[in-house]
């Protein structure tokens, strides 16, 4: 994979290059790791039909990761650099995406996809007018697949919340996931984050995205009779965050075993390249 001829990487100075890369890593790593977890539901979902639907969402997210990683190739990396030979401590995904699913905990899958997809919607909106053309150009294609994801998550929330057992399990999922979901809005590095916004690679700062997200998901979850574990006045402090936020490369042990699993074949076979089947994305 390598991207469009018009990639304006050369026009960036070192600080700008770092900022664009951090932004792309956040995006690509979130999608990739979220998709890895979603695929755990294949052949394990509640019904055959719901299995196909969640599999499709996993493939969509993986396809989005592919689009973002492709833009990182303009900076001289190939797929092994970006995934299979990459130091696991340099991954920038939110720790919510790396949490394993407990067997049968469909409420986790639903709450997680819901929290994630609302955040994804907002961040894509904030990339529509990115000053970095290659990012801007890919937003629309991703957005049109996200509509289904959100509708899927909300429909399930609705069904599960109307059942006593479902309601109880949703509440447990919200309690467990919510602190991790907040890491979606944490910076990879405060200085680099400031540059992402100053250069308008993303046109909204993270704290504003986070507030919008809260004003969206909190009332929605409450409308299903669910309690959201944040303070009365709705402010978020670092005390609300989990010990590992992921964005800074600090991850949980679950990430290490996930990383070992997905790189296993590549290592066992002694591969140095990753096979591509499709043409370069655009």
């Amino acid at each position: 994979m390598s991207s469009t001829a018009a990639a304006p990487v050369e026009d960036l100075d070192d600080d700008q290059r770092e900022a664009v890369q951090h932004l792309l890593y956040r995006l690509g790593d979130d999608e990739f790791v979220a998709a890895e977890r979603y695929t755990e539901w294949q052949v394990r979902a509640p019904t055959l039909e719901s299995d196909l639907a969640l599999s499709n969402i996993a493939q969509d997210e993986l396809g989005h990761a592919r689009l973002w990683y492709d833009l990182l190739q303009d900076f001289g990396y190939d797929e092994p650099d970006l995934l299979f030979e990459r130091d696991p401590e340099t991954f920038r995904h939110s720790t919510m995406t790396e949490l394993p699913f407990e067997e049968g905990d469909w409420s986790d899958a639903i709450v997680r996809t819901y929290l994630y997809d609302v955040a994804e919607d907002l961040r894509l909106e904030a990339l529509e007018d990115s000053s970095y053309g290659p990012i801007r150009d890919r937003v629309g294609k991703i957005q049109s697949e996200e509509d289904y994801h959100l509708e899927h998550a909300e429909s399930w929330l609705d069904r599960l919340a109307s059942d006593d057992d479902g309601q109880r399990r949703l509440q447990e999922a919200v309690d467990r996931l919510f602190p991790y979901a907040l890491t979606l809005f944490e910076p990879t590095d405060p200085d680099v984050e400031a540059r992402i916004v100053d250069n308008e690679y993303r046109t909204e700062p993270l704290d504003e995205l986070g507030e919008e997200w809260l004003s969206n998901v909190v009332p929605k979850l409450e409308s299903y009779g669910l309690d959201v574990p944040i303070s009365e006045d709705g402010t978020i402090t670092s005390a609300d965050l989990p010990p590992e936020i992921g964005r800074d490369g600090n991850h949980m042990d679950d990430w290490e075993s996930l990383y070992d699993d997905f790189t296993q074949t590549y290592r066992d076979l002694g591969r140095t390249e990753a096979t591509t089947l499709m043409e370069d994305p655009s």
């Binding site: 695929t39 396809g63 592919r66 699993d261 074949t265 076979l269 096979t275 089947l277």
Partner: peptide, 25 residues
Amino acid sequence: RPFIRQSPSIDRKLAFSAKVQDEIG
């Protein structure tokens, strides 16, 4: 299904996920 995760490239992973999905279908 374990080989969705263990696929040694993104494209292979996508293909594997799609294949397992087809079989459930």
